[in-house]
Design a binder for these strands. Structure first.
Lengths: 108, 108
DNA sequence: TTGACATTTCGACAATACTAGTAATAACGT
DNA sequence: ACGTTATTACTAGTATTGTCGAAATGTCAA
């Protein structure tokens, strides 16, 4: 995951509706959820929903799959892994930062 | 770290210059770096730099401290911790997702 | 092939973000 | 007090983002 990809992913998640969509899809699991259901749950007009899921998809955070008339969207857990890895590697200058390293400020 | 805070943090990092600034400050360590040096390194007009560091600061990702005439900015590692925690807790529906869980898709 | 359903594309608009020049503020030395 | 340095605040212009209605597309069943 390079800086450009990371920025796209951050940008995709940096919106109330898109973060809600992503969390909904994480909850839904690998099977995903059809676009219509997502729109209902979040409370978005169909065209607005498309706008946002496309943003998430361009960022590589979710995938699309057609099942008959419906389009299912599902979270791509691998991409989220990459994002967490990027943050972990860049948040404390390389040291792991995940649990209780907030105060490891000896590196000057 | 709630959703709103998270969105602010993502938004702050979702920009080429701001991500560069943040990474520079992580590299600089807890001592931080004066605004002028950051602007030189990133190649940004002073007023533009202020715009971006304020965005990072509002999001709680960096701190400000005055030393004589210079204003030092430093990465807030605790905030990054919170962000990573939020992602970890929300990326795989609660399961740890940091290292090799990308393919654990049996939960349906 | 017609009709219904699910979703996307298009177009227009309002709101927000980014950039950078210029003016103002803060700190310091003389 | 004055000039210099470091930085921020103000302002305006341009670009991007978000919203949603209407029209178009793809899918299916009869």
């Amino acid at each position: 995951m390079d800086a450009t990809r990371t920025i796209e992913a951050f940008g995709a998640l940096a919106h109330e509706h898109r973060l809600a969509i992503y969390r909904l899809l994480v909850e839904a699991g690998p099977g995903g959820m059809p676009a219509g259901h997502i729109g209902e749950r979040i409370g978005l007009a169909p065209s607005s929903l498309t706008f946002h899921v496309q943003s998430l998809q361009r960022a590589g955070l979710i995938t699309q799959r057609r099942a008959s008339r419906q389009l299912f969207y599902a979270a791509d857990f691998g991409a989220m892994n990459g994002l967490v890895d990027y943050l972990t590697k860049n948040c404390c200058g390389g040291a792991p930062c995940g649990k209780s390293n907030s105060r490891s400020r000896k590196a000057a």
